[in-house]
């Protein structure tokens, strides 16, 4: 919505040249810090109120249960940083698990199925990126079509849930990394953490990463500055597609099944995690670390509700909605102040 009531005001009250900055606090960090504070408060509340909440395994289980979401949210972070959105991720998870399960059931070797499954989302993401860049179709609509396509294809393949009994898959699903005091994480967590670290490094240390921020900040300027806007944008959707596929593979490890209705509404969870993690929905500001915190917030809400016992699952949605509202308003305030 274009703000039609307040015309842009030219900046005034600026200091003379050479003077120090207008204000010191780095506004980019405020949302992430807010999320961190929120997380700490939630955790403390949990530890204080519930027996056993303080166990390390409780925290680790948040990771175990949300590893796939973490991977998907990382891809979503890239897309949102450029100012776009990807609605197809939930459907891609469904398509990936369905294809993987179907092929495994047909006796294909895991070594072939795994790369194929990862390729699905990547190719779909590439296609959506191309449509968005070359034909100037709104990301919302292009990825909505992608969502219909992926969900439709998976339903076409099989409407029912398909169990996965493949040895490799079972091994992966049961793989646990145990630590001295008996706590453990699953393979999914390890993969998710690797993805997170790599994604964060790429954003911070490579030209590709910085171009993503530049496009999100001002795509027209980025073009005039000679940056490869089109290539970066397509790459970002491709990456998000890949992450969704990888998320799908992790999900199939997690549930040992392929089902065309897996991941319903997961795109909303991913978007919510990214926004709560302090990434600006209009692009150009935010960190992968923030997204991780956002996913943890979502996971912790569920954990608290489980521990509480008499609270029901729908509180998750309501709380997430309230948090979304709070963070969106916070973003508005922060960006308005910066301008």
């Amino acid at each position: 919505m274009i703000d039609v009531t307040t015309p842009p005001t030219p900046q005034r009250n600026r200091p003379l040249l050479g003077a120090k900055r207008v204000y010191k606090a780095n506004t980019k960090h405020i949302p992430v810090l807010a999320t961190l504070v929120l997380l700490v408060v939630m955790y403390s509340v949990g530890v204080y109120n519930y027996d056993g909440f303080g166990d390390t395994q409780v925290v680790l289980n948040v990771f175990v249960d949300n590893a796939f979401l973490l991977v998907v949210a990382v891809g979503m972070t890239y897309v949102i940083l450029t100012g776009g959105i990807d609605l197809s991720v939930g459907a891609v998870i469904a398509l990936t698990t369905t294809v993987a399960a179907t092929l495994l059931e047909a006796g294909w070797p895991a070594g072939v199925v795994l790369p194929l499954a990862l390729l699905i989302g990547t190719v779909l993401g590439l296609g959506m990126g191309c449509v968005i860049h070359f034909f100037k179709v709104e990301p919302f609509i292009a990825t909505l079509a992608g969502m219909f396509l992926a969900r439709g294809l998976s339903l076409l393949i099989n409407r029912n849930s398909i169990p996965i009994t493949n040895d490799f898959w079972t091994q992966m699903a049961q793989k646990r990394f145990r630590f001295d005091d008996g706590v453990f994480i699953s393979l999914n967590v390890v993969i998710a953490v690797i993805v997170v670290v790599l994604a964060a490094l790429v954003l911070a240390w490579t030209r590709f990463g910085r171009n993503i921020y530049a496009i999100g900040g001002n795509a027209d300027s980025a073009l005039l500055m000679g940056l490869p806007v089109g290539r970066t944008r397509i790459a970002v959707y491709t990456f998000s597609g890949f992450c969704a596929s990888l998320g799908g593979v992790l999900y199939s490890f997690y549930t040992s099944s392929g089902y065309s209705l897996h991941g319903q509404g997961l795109e909303l969870d991913a978007i919510a995690a990214v926004v709560i993690g302090g990434v600006l929905l209009t692009g150009g500001s935010g960190y992968v670390l923030g997204t991780v915190l956002g996913v943890l917030v979502l996971g912790l809400i569920q954990t608290i509700i489980t521990f509480q016992g008499d609270l029901n699952s729908w509180w998750t949605r309501i709380v997430v909605g309230i948090l979304l509202f709070a963070f969106i308003v916070l973003q508005r305030l922060v960006t308005r102040k910066a301008k």
Binding site: I85, L268, I271, N312, W314, G321, L324, I328
Partner: peptide, 19 residues
């Protein structure tokens, strides 16, 4: 932005309905 603004109720609304 409308997409974002209505997303809030989209997420929370079903929770309210379940409530």
């Amino acid at each position: 932005q409308p997409i974002i603004a209505t997303l809030i109720l989209m997420v929370a609304g079903r929770g309210v309905a379940q409530l």
